[in-house]
Write a protein that binds this DNA or RNA. Structure first.
Lengths: 201, 201
DNA sequence: CGGTATTGCGCAATGG
DNA sequence: CCCATTGCGCAATACC
Protein backbone atom coordinates (compact mmCIF):
# COMPACT_ATOMS: atom_id res chain seq x y z
CA UNK A 1 0.00 0.00 0.00
CA UNK A 2 1.86 2.81 0.58
CA UNK A 3 3.84 4.17 -1.99
CA UNK A 4 4.76 7.53 -1.45
CA UNK A 5 5.88 9.15 -4.35
CA UNK A 6 5.08 12.58 -4.73
CA UNK A 7 7.78 13.84 -2.65
CA UNK A 8 10.32 14.99 -5.05
CA UNK A 9 12.82 17.12 -3.42
CA UNK A 10 15.70 16.56 -5.60
CA UNK A 11 14.23 14.41 -8.11
CA UNK A 12 12.19 15.84 -10.78
CA UNK A 13 9.92 14.32 -13.18
CA UNK A 14 9.75 14.01 -16.77
CA UNK A 15 7.16 15.95 -18.53
CA UNK A 16 5.41 13.45 -20.55
CA UNK A 17 5.26 10.28 -18.91
CA UNK A 18 1.86 9.70 -17.69
CA UNK A 19 -1.43 11.39 -18.05
CA UNK A 20 -1.91 13.56 -15.18
CA UNK A 21 0.91 14.94 -13.53
CA UNK A 22 1.92 17.78 -12.10
CA UNK A 23 4.26 18.39 -9.79
CA UNK A 24 4.72 17.70 -6.62
CA UNK A 25 5.60 18.93 -3.77
CA UNK A 26 7.52 18.74 -0.82
CA UNK A 27 7.59 19.81 2.47
CA UNK A 28 10.18 21.45 4.20
CA UNK A 29 10.03 21.27 7.81
CA UNK A 30 12.80 23.11 9.21
CA UNK A 31 13.87 21.18 12.13
CA UNK A 32 15.29 24.01 13.83
CA UNK A 33 17.28 22.83 16.64
CA UNK A 34 16.28 19.57 17.99
CA UNK A 35 16.85 18.70 21.42
CA UNK A 36 20.29 17.64 22.03
CA UNK A 37 20.01 16.20 25.35
CA UNK A 38 23.29 14.71 25.83
CA UNK A 39 23.22 12.43 28.70
CA UNK A 40 25.25 9.64 30.03
CA UNK A 41 26.83 7.31 27.70
CA UNK A 42 25.10 5.66 24.88
CA UNK A 43 23.09 8.48 23.61
CA UNK A 44 21.82 6.33 20.86
CA UNK A 45 18.92 8.52 20.25
CA UNK A 46 20.78 11.07 18.34
CA UNK A 47 17.91 12.76 16.85
CA UNK A 48 19.10 16.21 16.83
CA UNK A 49 20.47 16.44 13.42
CA UNK A 50 17.71 15.49 11.06
CA UNK A 51 17.37 17.07 7.77
CA UNK A 52 17.78 20.64 7.16
CA UNK A 53 14.65 22.27 6.25
CA UNK A 54 11.50 20.50 5.77
CA UNK A 55 7.89 21.14 6.39
CA UNK A 56 6.88 24.22 4.87
CA UNK A 57 4.62 25.56 7.46
CA UNK A 58 7.32 25.27 9.82
CA UNK A 59 7.41 22.80 12.64
CA UNK A 60 7.39 25.06 15.49
CA UNK A 61 8.65 23.39 18.51
CA UNK A 62 7.55 26.37 20.40
CA UNK A 63 9.88 27.35 23.09
CA UNK A 64 11.45 24.23 24.26
CA UNK A 65 8.32 22.28 24.76
CA UNK A 66 6.57 20.11 22.37
CA UNK A 67 4.03 21.54 20.13
CA UNK A 68 3.32 18.87 17.68
CA UNK A 69 1.07 21.25 15.98
CA UNK A 70 2.60 23.28 13.31
CA UNK A 71 4.11 21.95 10.16
CA UNK A 72 0.78 22.88 8.79
CA UNK A 73 -0.28 22.69 5.26
CA UNK A 74 2.21 22.96 2.58
CA UNK A 75 2.76 26.42 1.45
CA UNK A 76 1.69 25.66 -2.00
CA UNK A 77 -1.76 25.09 -3.19
CA UNK A 78 -1.08 21.44 -2.96
CA UNK A 79 -3.46 18.76 -3.95
CA UNK A 80 -3.63 18.89 -7.65
CA UNK A 81 -0.33 17.32 -8.04
CA UNK A 82 -0.13 13.78 -9.03
CA UNK A 83 -2.36 11.27 -10.31
CA UNK A 84 -4.53 9.73 -7.89
CA UNK A 85 -3.91 9.53 -4.33
CA UNK A 86 -2.84 11.86 -1.82
CA UNK A 87 -2.87 15.45 -1.80
CA UNK A 88 0.14 15.28 0.16
CA UNK A 89 1.30 17.85 2.37
CA UNK A 90 4.69 18.34 1.35
CA UNK A 91 6.03 19.84 -1.62
CA UNK A 92 9.07 20.26 -3.53
CA UNK A 93 11.17 22.85 -1.99
CA UNK A 94 14.24 21.35 -3.31
CA UNK A 95 14.93 24.08 -5.69
CA UNK A 96 15.14 26.39 -2.77
CA UNK A 97 17.42 24.15 -0.94
CA UNK A 98 19.70 23.12 -3.65
CA UNK A 99 22.78 25.05 -4.33
CA UNK A 100 22.49 27.61 -7.02
CA UNK A 101 22.59 26.17 -10.44
CA UNK A 102 21.09 22.99 -9.34
CA UNK A 103 17.71 23.49 -10.84
CA UNK A 104 17.70 21.78 -14.11
CA UNK A 105 15.08 19.64 -15.67
CA UNK A 106 16.10 16.19 -16.55
CA UNK A 107 15.26 16.71 -20.10
CA UNK A 108 18.27 16.31 -22.18
CA UNK A 109 21.61 16.51 -20.46
CA UNK A 110 24.05 13.73 -20.85
CA UNK A 111 23.41 11.31 -18.07
CA UNK A 112 26.91 11.08 -16.92
CA UNK A 113 28.51 14.47 -16.80
CA UNK A 114 25.96 16.93 -15.57
CA UNK A 115 26.46 19.98 -13.52
CA UNK A 116 28.40 19.75 -10.32
CA UNK A 117 25.81 20.61 -7.80
CA UNK A 118 22.83 18.87 -9.14
CA UNK A 119 23.22 15.32 -8.34
CA UNK A 120 22.26 14.42 -11.77
CA UNK A 121 18.59 14.81 -11.97
CA UNK A 122 17.25 11.42 -11.52
CA UNK A 123 13.99 10.47 -13.01
CA UNK A 124 11.56 8.80 -10.79
CA UNK A 125 10.68 6.54 -13.59
CA UNK A 126 14.15 5.39 -14.24
CA UNK A 127 15.14 1.89 -13.48
CA UNK A 128 18.12 3.24 -11.66
CA UNK A 129 15.93 5.26 -9.38
CA UNK A 130 13.81 2.26 -8.58
CA UNK A 131 16.86 0.21 -7.85
CA UNK A 132 18.18 2.82 -5.51
CA UNK A 133 14.89 3.08 -3.75
CA UNK A 134 14.54 -0.62 -3.43
CA UNK A 135 18.01 -0.96 -2.00
CA UNK A 136 17.37 1.84 0.41
CA UNK A 137 14.10 0.31 1.47
CA UNK A 138 15.90 -2.88 2.23
CA UNK A 139 18.53 -1.02 4.18
CA UNK A 140 15.87 0.82 6.08
CA UNK A 141 14.06 -2.34 7.02
CA UNK A 142 17.30 -3.89 8.11
CA UNK A 143 18.28 -0.87 10.12
CA UNK A 144 14.94 -0.71 11.85
CA UNK A 145 15.02 -4.36 12.65
CA UNK A 146 18.39 -3.84 14.19
CA UNK A 147 17.17 -0.88 16.18
CA UNK A 148 14.22 -2.88 17.43
CA UNK A 149 16.47 -5.68 18.52
CA UNK A 150 18.80 -3.26 20.22
CA UNK A 151 15.99 -1.67 22.15
CA UNK A 152 14.65 -5.00 23.16
CA UNK A 153 18.04 -6.10 24.37
CA UNK A 154 18.45 -2.94 26.37
CA UNK A 155 15.10 -3.51 28.02
CA UNK A 156 15.97 -7.06 28.84
CA UNK A 157 19.34 -6.01 30.13
CA UNK A 158 17.69 -3.47 32.39
CA UNK A 159 15.36 -6.09 33.76
CA UNK A 160 18.20 -8.52 34.39
CA UNK A 161 20.30 -5.88 36.05
CA UNK A 162 17.42 -4.96 38.25
CA UNK A 163 17.00 -8.56 39.29
CA UNK A 164 20.65 -9.03 39.93
CA UNK A 165 20.62 -5.86 41.89
CA UNK A 166 17.99 -7.19 44.18
CA UNK A 167 19.90 -10.40 44.65
CA UNK A 168 23.03 -8.50 45.53
CA UNK A 169 21.18 -6.27 47.88
CA UNK A 170 19.75 -9.27 49.64
CA UNK A 171 23.08 -11.02 49.88
CA UNK A 172 24.58 -7.84 51.22
CA UNK A 173 21.99 -7.78 53.92
CA UNK A 174 22.87 -11.30 54.92
CA UNK A 175 26.57 -10.62 54.99
CA UNK A 176 26.08 -7.49 57.01
CA UNK A 177 23.97 -9.37 59.49
CA UNK A 178 26.52 -12.13 59.77
CA UNK A 179 29.29 -9.63 60.31
CA UNK A 180 27.29 -7.98 62.99
CA UNK A 181 26.85 -11.27 64.76
CA UNK A 182 30.50 -12.17 64.56
CA UNK A 183 31.49 -8.81 65.86
CA UNK A 184 29.18 -9.27 68.77
CA UNK A 185 30.67 -12.61 69.57
CA UNK A 186 34.14 -11.21 69.38
CA UNK A 187 33.28 -8.31 71.59
CA UNK A 188 31.76 -10.58 74.10
CA UNK A 189 34.81 -12.81 74.21
CA UNK A 190 37.00 -9.82 74.42
CA UNK A 191 35.25 -8.65 77.53
CA UNK A 192 35.37 -12.14 78.96
CA UNK A 193 39.07 -12.70 78.39
CA UNK A 194 40.79 -9.39 78.44
CA UNK A 195 44.07 -11.21 78.82
CA UNK A 196 44.02 -12.51 75.29
CA UNK A 197 43.64 -9.13 73.74
CA UNK A 198 45.26 -8.78 70.35
CA UNK A 199 45.63 -5.56 68.42
CA UNK A 200 43.03 -6.74 66.00
CA UNK A 201 41.48 -3.37 65.90
CA UNK B 1 9.69 17.06 1.05
CA UNK B 2 8.01 14.18 1.25
CA UNK B 3 4.66 13.77 0.54
CA UNK B 4 3.75 10.46 -0.05
CA UNK B 5 0.77 10.23 -1.84
CA UNK B 6 0.48 7.77 -4.36
CA UNK B 7 -0.09 5.10 -2.04
CA UNK B 8 -3.66 4.46 -2.36
CA UNK B 9 -4.34 1.38 -0.68
CA UNK B 10 -7.59 2.20 0.57
CA UNK B 11 -8.28 5.55 -0.59
CA UNK B 12 -9.16 6.28 -4.11
CA UNK B 13 -9.81 9.42 -5.84
CA UNK B 14 -12.73 11.19 -7.21
CA UNK B 15 -13.00 11.70 -10.79
CA UNK B 16 -13.64 15.31 -10.79
CA UNK B 17 -12.16 17.34 -8.15
CA UNK B 18 -8.92 18.52 -9.24
CA UNK B 19 -7.21 17.92 -12.41
CA UNK B 20 -6.12 14.63 -11.51
CA UNK B 21 -7.98 13.00 -8.89
CA UNK B 22 -9.87 10.22 -7.99
CA UNK B 23 -11.63 9.08 -5.22
CA UNK B 24 -11.33 7.27 -2.37
CA UNK B 25 -12.53 4.86 -0.46
CA UNK B 26 -12.68 2.92 2.41
CA UNK B 27 -11.02 0.84 4.72
CA UNK B 28 -12.20 -1.94 6.57
CA UNK B 29 -10.06 -2.56 9.36
CA UNK B 30 -10.27 -6.09 10.27
CA UNK B 31 -8.59 -6.14 13.51
CA UNK B 32 -7.48 -9.58 13.39
CA UNK B 33 -6.09 -10.44 16.64
CA UNK B 34 -3.61 -8.10 17.92
CA UNK B 35 -0.82 -9.34 19.74
CA UNK B 36 -0.43 -9.37 23.26
CA UNK B 37 3.11 -10.20 23.79
CA UNK B 38 3.41 -9.99 27.34
CA UNK B 39 6.90 -9.90 28.52
CA UNK B 40 8.33 -8.64 31.65
CA UNK B 41 7.50 -5.19 32.28
CA UNK B 42 7.86 -2.54 29.72
CA UNK B 43 7.81 -4.51 26.59
CA UNK B 44 7.33 -1.44 24.69
CA UNK B 45 8.88 -2.75 21.61
CA UNK B 46 6.08 -4.78 20.36
CA UNK B 47 6.92 -5.30 16.84
CA UNK B 48 5.65 -8.66 16.06
CA UNK B 49 2.19 -7.87 15.08
CA UNK B 50 2.28 -5.33 12.39
CA UNK B 51 -0.38 -5.16 9.87
CA UNK B 52 -2.01 -8.01 8.29
CA UNK B 53 -1.02 -8.18 4.77
CA UNK B 54 0.61 -5.47 3.08
CA UNK B 55 2.96 -5.07 0.29
CA UNK B 56 1.77 -6.74 -2.66
CA UNK B 57 4.68 -8.68 -3.72
CA UNK B 58 4.54 -10.23 -0.47
CA UNK B 59 6.87 -9.37 2.27
CA UNK B 60 8.48 -12.64 2.65
CA UNK B 61 10.31 -12.90 5.84
CA UNK B 62 11.66 -16.15 4.70
CA UNK B 63 11.79 -18.74 7.35
CA UNK B 64 12.40 -16.94 10.52
CA UNK B 65 15.42 -15.08 9.44
CA UNK B 66 15.66 -11.74 7.93
CA UNK B 67 15.47 -11.38 4.29
CA UNK B 68 15.02 -7.77 3.71
CA UNK B 69 14.79 -8.54 0.14
CA UNK B 70 11.42 -9.46 -1.01
CA UNK B 71 8.50 -7.11 -0.99
CA UNK B 72 9.58 -6.65 -4.53
CA UNK B 73 7.77 -4.75 -7.10
CA UNK B 74 4.12 -4.45 -6.89
CA UNK B 75 2.28 -7.27 -8.46
CA UNK B 76 0.65 -5.07 -10.93
CA UNK B 77 2.25 -3.68 -13.92
CA UNK B 78 3.04 -0.82 -11.70
CA UNK B 79 4.22 2.49 -12.73
CA UNK B 80 1.57 3.38 -15.16
CA UNK B 81 -0.97 3.82 -12.52
CA UNK B 82 -0.58 7.21 -11.22
CA UNK B 83 0.63 10.29 -12.56
CA UNK B 84 4.14 11.09 -12.21
CA UNK B 85 6.27 10.09 -9.53
CA UNK B 86 7.04 6.91 -8.17
CA UNK B 87 6.34 3.73 -9.51
CA UNK B 88 5.79 2.81 -6.09
CA UNK B 89 6.08 -0.52 -4.80
CA UNK B 90 3.02 -1.01 -3.03
CA UNK B 91 -0.37 -1.11 -4.24
CA UNK B 92 -3.84 -1.38 -3.34
CA UNK B 93 -4.61 -4.82 -2.22
CA UNK B 94 -7.37 -3.65 -0.09
CA UNK B 95 -9.99 -5.18 -2.23
CA UNK B 96 -8.48 -8.52 -1.53
CA UNK B 97 -8.43 -7.87 2.09
CA UNK B 98 -11.74 -6.34 2.50
CA UNK B 99 -14.62 -8.37 3.68
CA UNK B 100 -16.85 -9.60 0.98
CA UNK B 101 -19.12 -6.97 -0.30
CA UNK B 102 -16.71 -4.29 0.51
CA UNK B 103 -15.46 -3.78 -2.97
CA UNK B 104 -17.49 -1.05 -4.40
CA UNK B 105 -16.41 1.75 -6.49
CA UNK B 106 -17.11 5.11 -5.09
CA UNK B 107 -19.19 5.88 -8.04
CA UNK B 108 -22.63 6.57 -6.86
CA UNK B 109 -23.57 5.48 -3.40
CA UNK B 110 -25.02 7.93 -1.02
CA UNK B 111 -22.26 9.49 0.92
CA UNK B 112 -23.72 9.01 4.28
CA UNK B 113 -25.24 5.61 4.46
CA UNK B 114 -22.97 3.38 2.50
CA UNK B 115 -22.33 -0.20 3.06
CA UNK B 116 -21.16 -1.27 6.43
CA UNK B 117 -17.66 -2.08 5.58
CA UNK B 118 -16.76 0.89 3.53
CA UNK B 119 -16.11 3.68 5.92
CA UNK B 120 -17.60 6.26 3.77
CA UNK B 121 -15.38 6.90 0.87
CA UNK B 122 -13.11 9.60 1.89
CA UNK B 123 -11.67 11.86 -0.69
CA UNK B 124 -8.10 12.73 -0.47
CA UNK B 125 -8.99 16.18 -1.44
CA UNK B 126 -11.55 16.64 1.22
CA UNK B 127 -10.90 18.99 4.01
CA UNK B 128 -11.92 16.29 6.36
CA UNK B 129 -9.26 13.99 5.03
CA UNK B 130 -6.62 16.64 5.44
CA UNK B 131 -7.74 17.33 8.95
CA UNK B 132 -7.56 13.68 9.80
CA UNK B 133 -4.13 13.38 8.31
CA UNK B 134 -2.88 16.43 10.06
CA UNK B 135 -4.16 15.23 13.37
CA UNK B 136 -2.62 11.85 12.82
CA UNK B 137 0.67 13.39 11.85
CA UNK B 138 0.68 15.30 15.08
CA UNK B 139 -0.15 12.17 16.99
CA UNK B 140 2.61 10.33 15.22
CA UNK B 141 5.19 12.95 16.04
CA UNK B 142 4.06 12.96 19.61
CA UNK B 143 4.14 9.21 19.86
CA UNK B 144 7.60 8.99 18.37
CA UNK B 145 8.87 11.64 20.68
CA UNK B 146 7.52 9.67 23.54
CA UNK B 147 9.10 6.49 22.26
CA UNK B 148 12.44 8.23 21.90
CA UNK B 149 12.25 9.49 25.44
CA UNK B 150 11.25 6.09 26.68
CA UNK B 151 14.14 4.42 24.97
CA UNK B 152 16.52 6.99 26.30
CA UNK B 153 15.25 6.50 29.81
CA UNK B 154 15.62 2.77 29.53
CA UNK B 155 19.18 3.17 28.37
CA UNK B 156 19.98 5.51 31.21
CA UNK B 157 18.33 3.18 33.66
CA UNK B 158 20.44 0.32 32.38
CA UNK B 159 23.56 2.36 32.80
CA UNK B 160 22.65 3.39 36.32
CA UNK B 161 21.77 -0.14 37.27
CA UNK B 162 25.06 -1.35 35.92
CA UNK B 163 26.92 1.21 37.96
CA UNK B 164 25.00 0.40 41.06
CA UNK B 165 25.66 -3.23 40.42
CA UNK B 166 29.35 -2.64 40.39
CA UNK B 167 29.18 -0.69 43.59
CA UNK B 168 27.24 -3.46 45.25
CA UNK B 169 29.61 -6.06 43.97
CA UNK B 170 32.52 -4.15 45.37
CA UNK B 171 30.88 -3.63 48.72
CA UNK B 172 30.05 -7.30 48.80
CA UNK B 173 33.68 -8.10 48.26
CA UNK B 174 34.66 -5.92 51.19
CA UNK B 175 32.09 -7.44 53.47
CA UNK B 176 33.09 -10.93 52.50
CA UNK B 177 36.69 -10.15 53.19
CA UNK B 178 35.87 -8.66 56.52
CA UNK B 179 33.81 -11.65 57.47
CA UNK B 180 36.63 -13.91 56.49
CA UNK B 181 38.99 -12.00 58.73
CA UNK B 182 36.68 -12.09 61.67
CA UNK B 183 36.12 -15.75 61.22
CA UNK B 184 39.84 -16.27 61.24
CA UNK B 185 40.25 -14.34 64.40
CA UNK B 186 37.50 -16.26 66.05
CA UNK B 187 38.93 -19.59 64.98
CA UNK B 188 42.30 -18.60 66.30
CA UNK B 189 40.92 -17.59 69.64
CA UNK B 190 38.89 -20.71 69.75
CA UNK B 191 42.00 -22.84 69.39
CA UNK B 192 43.83 -20.71 71.92
CA UNK B 193 41.18 -20.82 74.60
CA UNK B 194 39.21 -24.01 74.18
CA UNK B 195 37.76 -23.49 77.60
CA UNK B 196 35.72 -20.55 76.53
CA UNK B 197 33.99 -22.35 73.71
CA UNK B 198 30.39 -21.29 73.15
CA UNK B 199 27.86 -22.89 70.88
CA UNK B 200 28.08 -19.98 68.64
CA UNK B 201 27.12 -21.85 65.59
C1' DC C 1 -18.96 5.40 16.48
C1' DG C 2 -15.39 8.92 17.19
C1' DG C 3 -11.02 10.02 18.49
C1' DT C 4 -5.96 9.42 19.65
C1' DA C 5 -1.85 6.16 19.98
C1' DT C 6 1.14 2.78 17.74
C1' DT C 7 3.33 0.67 14.19
C1' DG C 8 5.24 -0.80 9.60
C1' DC C 9 6.38 1.20 5.41
C1' DG C 10 8.53 3.95 1.74
C1' DC C 11 10.81 8.35 0.68
C1' DA C 12 14.45 11.60 0.91
C1' DA C 13 18.27 13.73 3.35
C1' DT C 14 22.30 12.86 5.36
C1' DG C 15 26.19 10.55 7.62
C1' DG C 16 29.98 7.34 7.18
C1' DC D 1 29.29 5.06 -5.13
C1' DC D 2 27.48 2.21 -1.35
C1' DC D 3 24.95 1.26 2.82
C1' DA D 4 23.20 2.96 7.51
C1' DT D 5 20.38 6.24 10.06
C1' DT D 6 16.92 9.26 10.74
C1' DG D 7 12.75 12.42 10.39
C1' DC D 8 8.62 12.51 8.04
C1' DG D 9 3.94 11.51 6.24
C1' DC D 10 0.68 7.78 5.14
C1' DA D 11 -2.35 4.05 6.16
C1' DA D 12 -3.70 0.22 9.02
C1' DT D 13 -4.50 -0.92 13.35
C1' DA D 14 -4.70 -0.86 18.28
C1' DC D 15 -6.72 1.27 22.05
C1' DC D 16 -10.11 4.05 24.49
Amino acid sequence: MADSSERSPVIQEWPGSYPGQGLNSTDPSMHVSASSMAQMEMMLGCQAQGSVLRGCGGEERVGGQLAYLSYMQPCTGNAASSDQHHISTQQDFSSFLLPPGACRLPSGGPPGACLPVTKRTISKNSVEYRLRRERNNIAVRKSRDKARRRILLTQQRAVQLQEENQRLQMRMGQLTQELETLRHVLAQRHSMQPDAGEPRC
